[in-house]
Nucleic acid binder design. Structure first.
Lengths: 184, 184
DNA sequence: GCTGTAAAGCTAACAGCATTAGCTTCGCCT
DNA sequence: AGGCGAAGCTAATGCTGTTAGCTTTACAGC
């Protein structure tokens, strides 16, 4: 019986594949075990529990998103950067719907996710720094931006907008609403 | 052995109490059965499955929210109505966090929730009608409004905003951002 | 090259979950 | 009084996550 050569990272890889295939509810230890070719209890050698696996998966998701958004805003500033940030987020959600559904909304509260969460937050703050925003104003602006992006994409993802008619148009107007709320 | 005198509505009542007490994950048939003083399989006499129970609970949640928001905007128009709508939603989320976490985002797609969903959507549309918005413009504005409200409240609910510092202030600015995007 | 050991795998078992089948009993209607 | 449908029950199944305890692998050091 050859050894599978698993590792925490490999388990997370498999979990991510399972997540992509069937969504957050499908992310079960049985599914991950089948995919790694290992018996269910063997997973406990690499991961403390299903809860911890979810946290580790969440950390990876935040890392990915942070990297992608960082790349998207590179070389841009102000309204262009905001638009790029918002469009890149929506593109990510449409490309990986199940991943966004499993994305932790409070990565800073979980030690294993805090570093990635910090990087993601940095992207937002860097974009807003281009407007000369600092301190409380920057915090408020970040919250507006995040609320708009997360609100729209999560509603779209859940099918909360009825028919997918004119959604691009709606999003363009949402972007305009956000940029209009930022200093000239 | 006296009969419990259950009914679908009574089961939903109990489910709502369970939801309030422990959140969406605590909404289990075992918990509902315990609360109604009945054995688990007996619930199937009133509800087809846990899935259906969730749908019915969701319908009640949307009804409640629609009623509340309708009352909140009564007698108000334009920016005042938008502000009231947004504030009332946030107040609901803070008052019943577990209920909002279980709130269906696409009530129109589920027959049992469609009627309540329609009523809720009507409140949004009625408020925007005060701006003279019709057709596509009204649709886009509704989406902006919903995105802002849902985005902020769900992020706040999940603890995604770090410390609860100046959240009222942030929300006020979010309201201003939305109203500024509507016709003068 | 052999051996000792820690890690990585396994099977067996348990508790909690949703669900189904089939039985019993209640309470109303005639 | 009798009948009948609805409402309850127990028993059983299969799926979860989790733990305990055993076996085996692969490498480190002699």
């Amino acid at each position: 019986m050859p050894r599978a050569g698993l590792s925490p990272a490999a388990v997370v890889d498999a979990a991510l594949a399972v997540l992509d295939g069937g969504g957050p509810d499908a992310l079960t230890l049985a599914a991950v075990a089948k995919r790694t070719g290992v018996a269910v209890p063997s997973l406990y050698k690499h991961v403390r529990s299903l809860g911890e696996l979810r946290v580790l998966v969440g950390a990876r998701l935040v890392e990915d998103l942070a990297e992608r958004l960082g790349a998207a805003v590179m070389g841009l500033s102000r309204d262009d950067a905001v638009a790029a940030l918002m469009r890149a987020t929506r593109a990510y959600v449409r490309e990986h719907p199940h991943r966004y559904a499993a994305m932790p909304l409070d990565p800073l509260h979980e030690p294993a996710q805090a570093e990635a969460g910090q990087r993601l937050m940095e992207v937002f703050l860097a974009v807003l720094r281009g407007y000369g925003l600092h301190g409380a104003d920057a915090v408020h602006a970040t919250r507006r931006l995040r609320a708009a992006v997360h609100g729209f994409t999560s509603l779209e993802l859940a099918g909360g907008f009825g028919l997918p008619e004119d959604l691009d148009d709606s999003y363009q107007r949402l972007i305009a609403m956000v940029t209009a709320s930022l200093p000239a």
